[in-house]
Design a protein around this nucleic acid. Structure first.
Lengths: 175, 175
DNA sequence: GATGCATTGTACCGATCAGTACAAAAGACG
DNA sequence: CGTCTTTTGTACTGATCGGTACAATGCATC
């Protein structure tokens, strides 16, 4: 499954072929279609679900549950870790950009909506007004996605790290 | 050419097929390969070049030439216009995310590098220090890309507009 | 060891892929 | 009109696409 995720991340949904999957995972077509009768689409859906679960467990839920300052600090750390300082892209963000979006719109929407809501909730608990919290949360989530695009385009991890720490300190100053 | 750009934007590089192109442009394969002997790759390169030229003419060059405050205001307006408030994605950003990146790395890198440099230059002329100007420029460019991802994922143009105006007022306050 | 189910490799399918060949057509220019 | 180049439609190529069929395995449980 992690291999599968990495393939989709590198090649995109359309760029990922069954032969690439069998080659890089060592799993034959027979097994692949045994576990994923729905084919490529089901595989991608499973990967999306796994990604979602990871963020739910390690980012969103702490944001809802823990002390805002602590959870938000953990979020920045977790994000930098997960995306390897820009060395790894966000599969959900990539899917959101091209024609793949229509196929998985619900999963994509949910991933981002819950992220923004959880972060905004933490900011409200941290003392921000509803509107301001939402705006700051959107800015943070969108900033992470943009940092992935830019750092990858410039092939420079420092861009990602700089952006992350910049947003972190800026956000911390708001509450 | 604008049609071609729109197809690549919607479907991504890998998702765009020759038959889609012939169908949606009404141009047959014969003509297509007559003007682009290099096939799909050459078509995408031509589109990227056209996009680059547009930004060079209407965004980067004004940033280098005009009064900073004026050029930067024009940039935000131009960006909101060009991307139709998030209704249209950035082809270069999308290409930067998946395997297409390796194929066009130079064009992708140049597009973003020159954007950041031109904006940072304007900010320096506006009174910012070199480092601060670069950081702010990166934040703005990356914010635009992220806004495209998020607004598209949530299917909500307001997210894009809110993010753009937020960044605009924030940036204006720095110089 | 026999039975039954889960798993896998392989051969195959029609469709479609990017790309080519080439002759017909359309224009340009005299 | 005649000639020459540019442009276009169409038929075709081999390769690869996602997906299916199915027999051969592995592997429990009795």
């Amino acid at each position: 499954m992690p291999l599968l995720a990495e393939i989709f991340r590198e090649l995109g949904y359309e760029g990922t072929t069954l032969s690439q999957i069998t080659e890089r995972t060592g799993i034959g077509k027979g097994s692949l279609y045994h576990f994923f009768p729905g084919g490529k689409e089901e595989m991608a859906a499973a990967v999306l679900e796994e990604v979602d679960r990871w963020f739910e467990d390690f980012i969103y839920e702490p944001l809802r549950r823990d002390e805002p300052a602590v959870a938000i600090a953990a979020m920045w750390r977790g994000v930098d870790d997960y995306f390897r300082s820009g060395g790894r892209i966000c599969l959900v963000g990539a899917f959101a950009l091209d024609g793949t979006r229509e196929r998985f719109s619900e999963a994509i929407n949910g991933y981002f909506r819950r992220w923004v809501e959880a972060l905004a909730g933490a900011l409200v608990r941290g003392g921000l007004k509803q509107d301001a919290a939402r705006a700051e949360a959107e800015a943070a989530v969108l900033g992470i996605q943009g940092a992935l695009v830019l750092s990858r385009a410039l092939d420079d991890h420092d861009v990602f790290r700089r952006a992350i720490t910049g947003m972190q300190t800026r956000l911390k100053a708001t509450f």
